[in-house]
C-alpha cells in the first residue's frame, strides 16, 4: 500500500458516495446513465469474486464489499426507487458494443486462461470503458449538473492516482501488471476532455454545458 493507491481508493469511494448522495438527497437520478452504473456493478461483481476464494487484507475485503454494495444500491435507485426520474431517452449508448468486444478481448489477452482470471480481465477491460454511456449522455444533453461533474472528477482522479501507484510499485516493488496498466491508461485518457472542462468551467463556478 502506498499513498497513491490509498488516495486513489478513497477518491473512488468518494465518487461512489457522491453519486449515491446526489440521487438520495435530490430524490432524482436525472442526468445519470443507468447503463454506466449497471456496467460498474458488473465490473465489481466479476472482479471481486475472489472475495470468496482469496483473503488479502481486512481493508481489501471491506472496500470490495462496500464497492459492490454501493454499486447495486445505485442501480436499484436508478431502475427501481427513482425510476420515474431516470432519463432513459438520453441514455441510448449501445452497451453491447462495449461488452461483447471486451468479453472477446478478455478471452484472448489474459494472464492465465482460467475462469476467475478471465472474469478478472473482463472486469479490468470493462471498467476502462464503463463510463462511456455517461459521457455520451452528457454530450447528448450538452450539460451536466455540478454534482455529477464532481462525481466524474473523483472517478477520473482515482484512475490517475492509480497510474502514479503503478509507477511507484514498478520502482519500489518491481511490480507491474501490463493488463491493468494499459486498461488504466486508456480509462484515464477518456477523462482528459472532461478534466479540461471541469477545471476551466466547474472550478470557476460555472455549470458544465457544452457548445451546441
Amino acid at each position: 500500500m502506498n499513498i497513491f493507491r490509498l488516495t486513489g481508493d478513497l477518491s473512488h469511494l468518494a465518487a461512489i458516495i457522491i453519486l449515491l448522495l446526489k440521487i438520495w438527497k435530490s430524490r432524482s437520478c436525472a442526468g445519470i446513465s443507468g447503463k454506466s452504473q449497471i456496467l460498474f456493478a458488473i465490473v465489481f461483481t466479476t472482479r471481486y469474486l475472489d472475495l470468496l476464494s482469496t483473503f488479502i487484507s481486512l481493508y481489501n475485503s471491506c472496500m470490495k464489499v462496500i464497492y459492490i454494495g454501493c454499486a447495486y444500491a445505485t442501480v436499484y435507485m436508478i431502475y427501481m426507487k427513482f425510476r420515474a426520474t431516470y432519463d432513459g431517452n438520453h441514455d441510448s449508448f449501445r452497451v453491447e458494443f462495449l461488452v461483447v468486444p471486451v468479453g472477446g478481448l478478455a478471452v484472448l489477452i489474459n494472464h492465465d486462461f482460467s475462469f476467475m482470471e478471465i472474469l478478472w480481465t473482463f472486469s479490468i477491460y470493462l471498467e476502462s470503458v464503463a463510463i462511456l454511456p455517461q459521457l455520451f449522455m452528457i454530450s447528448k444533453t450538452g450539460e451536466a449538473e455540478t454534482i455529477t461533474t464532481h462525481y466524474l472528477f473523483c472517478l477520473g482522479l482515482y484512475r490517475a492516482l492509480y497510474i502514479f501507484n503503478w509507477v511507484w510499485r514498478f520502482y519500489f516493488e518491481g511490480f507491474f501488471d501490463l493488463i491493468a496498466i494499459v486498461a488504466g491508461v486508456v480509462q484515464t485518457i477518456l477523462y482528459c476532455d472532461f478534466f479540461y472542462l471541469y477545471v476551466t468551467k466547474v472550478l470557476k463556478g460555472k455549470k458544465l454545458s457544452l457548445p451546441a
Binding site: 473512488h12 472482479r47 482469496t54 472496500m63 482460467s114 476467475m116 482470471e117 501507484n165 501488471d177
Partner: peptide
C-alpha cells in the same frame, strides 16, 4: 492455485 496472478489491488 485459485489466484495464480495475485491481484491485490481494488
Amino acid at each position: 492455485s485459485q489466484d495464480p496472478v495475485g491481484h491485490d489491488e481494488l
